[in-house]
């Protein structure tokens, strides 16, 4: 499994994905000047832009790496070779997942350092009324990384049942979009305002879907990092547990489906 993880990581580097990200990271150089356009919150805007950029890059990585990794292996008939070795299918899937997760962690660390430099420059030019709490910024980065690692697990699950990359890529994008509004929809159908307009059956369907798709809103700690608002420790612990449980289910599902998949 560890070998598979190493191979995955090597493969990502060989495909020059990291260099591509570094090219995108050039945008961090422009963050201090872009943030200086703000009227009253230059530092806050620099944190917003930095975290948004990191979030966007991680999203692209999780969707495209997670969604195409298995498909490419099968397409290149690489899987057949690997699985003829003394390596179980579950180790193969877990190795792929851990390799991609490790790559996301690595990218987060590198981009996180770049973000800290950009925010530091912006805040030295226009000191904030409320100083940046770096631990909150770090927490926001950690939870953003966890969120996209979970999304990689979604992409892998979809890859195990798909014969092309369309389902994993677009399915992951749809899951991501749905995860952003599931909380809103759930709260609406259970609100007093919806009692008259929403049928009980629809409410039950929405509730079922709410529990089925990942709820990624809890991983978003941007507000806490941007405005130095202390996050709720219980919420953080619950979100971390949610991540572990949900990812475990996704991986177990992926392994189950991949074990049953016929390789021709």
């Amino acid at each position: 499994m560890l070998n598979m993880m190493r191979i995955t990581l090597k493969g990502v580097f060989r495909d020059r994905v990291f260099q591509g990200i570094m090219a995108l990271a050039v945008l961090f150089l422009f963050i201090p000047s872009a943030a200086s356009l703000s009227m009253r919150q230059v530092t806050e805007l620099s944190v917003t832009l930095s975290l948004s950029l990191i979030s966007f890059i991680l999203l692209l990585l999780s969707v495209f790496l997670g969604g195409t990794s298995l498909w490419r292996d099968i397409e290149r008939r690489y899987t057949f070779g690997v699985l003829s070795l003394p390596l179980s299918r579950s180790s193969y899937i877990l190795g792929r997942f851990l390799g991609l997760a490790l790559f996301l962690v690595l990218v987060s660390v590198v981009l996180g350092v770049a973000a800290c430099v950009a925010v530091n420059v912006a805040s030295s030019l226009y000191p904030a009324d409320r100083p940046v709490v770096w631990s909150f910024v770090a927490l926001a980065l950690v939870y953003a990384t966890l969120k996209y690692i979970l999304l990689v697990a979604v992409a892998l699950l979809l890859s195990t049942v798909s014969t092309s990359f369309f389902l994993p890529v677009f399915g992951t994008i749809c899951t991501f979009l749905a995860s952003g509004i599931s909380q809103q929809v759930y709260e609406y159908v259970h609100s007093a305002a919806a009692v008259q307009t929403v049928s009980p059956l629809f409410r039950q369907v929405v509730t079922a879907v709410y529990y089925l798709i990942p709820n990624l809103a809890g991983f978003d700690l941007k507000i806490n990092a941007i405005y130095s608002v202390a996050p709720n420790p219980r919420g953080l612990a619950l979100t971390a547990c949610y991540f572990l449980a949900y990812t475990a289910i996704l991986l177990a599902g992926s392994i189950f489906l991949f074990n049953r998949r016929e390789m021709k």
């Binding site: 917003t48 832009l49 948004s52 979030s55 953003a144 979009l177 952003g180 509004i181």
Partner: peptide, 12 residues
């Protein structure tokens, strides 16, 4: 809904 986790950026 559309801005998902980029609400702060959308607001700015």
């Amino acid at each position: 809904s559309v801005s998902v986790d980029q609400k702060e950026l959308a607001g700015a």
